[in-house]
Amino acid sequence: MSKEMVINGETFHASEEQTLLENLEQQGIQTEYQCRDGHCGACQCQLISGSVEYIIEPLAYVRKNHILTCCSKAKSAIELVIPEAKLPLKLTG
């Protein structure tokens, strides 16, 4: 099963089995991460729409309408904004 995932306006299909960060990596999208364990907060980004489910409850201070990509999975179609993300040509065209 996959869910539609929009990042900075570009769409792809995200696997529900994997975390959002793993999905981003699979698409070749470079975003910031550090601990991959929900405690450093480096992967925090803005959630425009949709909802996520945490496989590890975040210890980092997560601001309103923000999520951590390293420890969450898509529960619905979601849209994210990650200003510093580097998107590959296959998505941006």
Binding site: Q30, Y33, Q34, C35, R36, D37, H39, C40
Partner: peptide
């Protein structure tokens, strides 16, 4: 960016 590989809490 390589520093992130060292900062993963495995």
């Amino acid at each position: 960016p390589w520093i992130n590989n060292w900062l993963v809490s495995d």
